[in-house]
Simulated scan of single mutants.
Amino acid sequence: MTMPAEPHEETLTARQQAVLDAVLALMVEQGGELTMNAVARRASCSKESLYKWFGDRDGLLTATVRWQASKVRAGNYDRTRLDATALHDSLTRFASNWLGVISSPTSIALNRFAIARADTGGGKLGAIMLANGRFAIGDRLKPVLDAGREAGLIDFDDTETAFRSFIGLVGRDVQIRLLLGDRLALTQAEIARDAARATDQFLTLYGTATTVPEHHTANA
């Protein structure tokens, strides 16, 4: 089957977004195998529409992963006028969005689904999630880090290493605990606190001599 061009989150119609939300809801409720029939029933649309919009089951899963990952955004900033406050705000917003997404039931279900299929010949979903989840998110944050380096606010040799350091400070052990069934519940206030704290820690590690984090979080 010839696959249509995958819709980007910016070009998805409200109807297509509703379909992807239906896929996420099914994963949370049922896990396991997803069929186009089940998705069509849940989304109250025809299988023909699903094939037209997403190509096939892998195309539908790819769009679902991208839809979930699209919720992670860095803050707006002017690259030519980036200062310490704008950098801190952008990193904190990114950290808060990402931590909220990875700790959500939908992301937990997606990751469990991909892990379960990795050893059963269905590992393609893992590659889909890496390409459209983790790697795509890295592509969104790395320009912010590079802009901070160009502005003399942070200093590092390798952008990928700096990105991994930041993600590690933000995520800590939250994701693995949730995947293993820990009933960890993060409130919005806790997510905001942890995001700001991780950003301060990152700027302490990578900030230049003239960069001092302007927001200091409690050592909670």
Results as ranks from 00 to 15, higher is better:
113 F>D: 13
31 G>S: 02
52 K>G: 04
87 L>E: 03
86 A>P: 00
157 D>M: 12
134 R>L: 14
171 G>I: 11
47 K>S: 04
140 R>V: 13
96 S>W: 00
156 F>K: 04
158 D>A: 09
60 L>T: 03
158 D>T: 08
112 R>P: 00
173 D>G: 12
126 G>A: 12
161 T>N: 11
168 G>N: 04
162 A>P: 06
61 L>I: 14
142 K>C: 06
186 L>F: 02
22 A>F: 04
49 S>Q: 14
213 P>G: 11
64 T>I: 09
186 L>D: 01
60 L>G: 03
119 D>E: 14
142 K>A: 11
86 A>E: 03
63 A>T: 07
44 S>T: 13
71 K>I: 00
131 A>I: 07
176 I>H: 07
78 D>A: 09
191 I>W: 03
142 K>E: 13
141 L>W: 00
14 A>Q: 14
70 S>L: 00
109 A>C: 02
1 M>K: 11
135 F>W: 14
120 T>M: 08
91 L>R: 02
138 G>P: 09
220 A>I: 15
142 K>S: 09
20 L>F: 03
129 M>Q: 12
67 W>L: 05
50 L>R: 05
25 A>Y: 02
200 D>F: 14
112 R>W: 02
92 T>S: 12
33 E>F: 10
141 L>N: 02
194 D>E: 15
104 S>V: 01
32 G>K: 11
101 V>L: 10
143 P>V: 09
94 F>W: 08
149 R>Q: 14
8 H>M: 13
138 G>L: 07
165 S>M: 08
50 L>Q: 07
220 A>G: 14
32 G>F: 06
206 Y>C: 03
184 L>T: 11
130 L>S: 13
212 V>C: 08
209 A>H: 13
14 A>H: 12
188 Q>C: 00
172 R>Y: 11
174 V>E: 06
53 W>E: 12
12 L>R: 06
195 A>T: 06
149 R>M: 12
155 D>C: 13
127 A>F: 07
75 G>K: 00
189 A>I: 09
215 H>G: 06
113 F>E: 13
6 E>D: 06
24 L>W: 04
77 Y>C: 03
158 D>S: 12
42 R>V: 03
56 D>I: 08
41 R>C: 01
140 R>E: 13
84 A>C: 11
42 R>Q: 14
170 V>K: 02
94 F>D: 00
209 A>I: 10
214 E>L: 15
18 A>Q: 14
103 S>N: 02
180 L>D: 12
37 N>E: 15
203 L>Y: 04
195 A>P: 06
37 N>L: 12
149 R>I: 06
102 I>E: 01
74 A>N: 01
91 L>F: 03
137 I>Q: 11
173 D>W: 04
114 A>E: 08
1 M>Y: 11
60 L>S: 02
15 R>M: 09
3 M>E: 13
182 D>N: 05
45 C>W: 05
211 T>K: 08
20 L>N: 10
150 E>P: 01
110 L>M: 14
174 V>R: 08
